[in-house]
Simulated scan of single mutants.
Amino acid sequence: MQRLMKLTVLSLVAIGFAAGCNKKETEEQSSPAPQVTKALSTVVVPAQVQGKWKAVQIEVADKNAHLKKVYSVKIGSDFKLPGSDLTLKVETFLPHFVMEGTTLTSQSNDLVNPAAQLVIRENGKEIYKGWLFSLYPATHAFQHPQYGFTLVDYQPAS
């Protein structure tokens, strides 16, 4: 009799467990996929870098005209690209770019891994915000049907 009761209890537990698993699987199948949240990065310009750089040189390649021209763009200022509807703004320059978790910063004021944070607007609308790396120009390169952008030089503050 006890053996029969144990078998009955074990059977009920097994049925309950199986039903619970099926219910959970059904809930997982019917629930929407989890949302992936992209971690926002923070740019930190260390005191040893602040105010030490006044501009960067950006080479603009006009793919249609097969021409390249270098422009000096002051850090923090808007620059209207001649003959286009584009405005460039270098928000930040980091001479020794490093990424520490979600923080983007510069380890020193030495030109080890120069990077410029660039915002591009077309007819006033932001179409790109990202980084140009002089050592790795193809990394995260902005794709525009007519223009290409490359960080080529940097101008220290006087």
Rank of each mutant, 00 (worst) to 15 (best):
T42E: 15
E25N: 12
H140K: 12
N22C: 14
A18S: 15
R3Y: 10
N123K: 14
E59T: 12
D153Y: 03
F133R: 01
K68I: 07
Q50C: 04
Y71T: 05
V44P: 05
I127L: 03
S108Y: 05
W131L: 02
V152S: 05
G101D: 06
K74N: 14
P156M: 08
I58V: 13
A116K: 00
K69P: 02
V43Y: 12
L132Y: 00
K38G: 09
S77I: 05
K129P: 02
A19C: 10
A33D: 09
H66A: 13
Q48M: 15
V98G: 02
G51M: 06
I120T: 09
T105E: 03
R121N: 12
D85F: 07
P32N: 09
G83K: 09
A33Q: 08
Q35Y: 08
E25R: 13
T150Q: 09
N113I: 00
S108W: 04
G130M: 03
Q50R: 11
H140M: 11
P114T: 02
P145V: 00
A115V: 02
I120A: 08
S84K: 07
S11K: 09
T26I: 13
Q155I: 14
K129A: 09
V49P: 06
K89S: 07
G20D: 04
T8S: 15
I75M: 00
S106M: 02
L94N: 02
S134I: 08
T105H: 05
L135P: 05
Y147G: 04
L94C: 01
C21R: 11
K74Q: 12
K68G: 06
W53F: 15
E91Q: 11
E122Q: 13
E59M: 09
T37A: 14
A116R: 02
V152F: 00
K89A: 05
D153M: 01
E28V: 14
K23I: 13
F142G: 03
V49N: 03
M99L: 12
Q146K: 10
E100C: 08
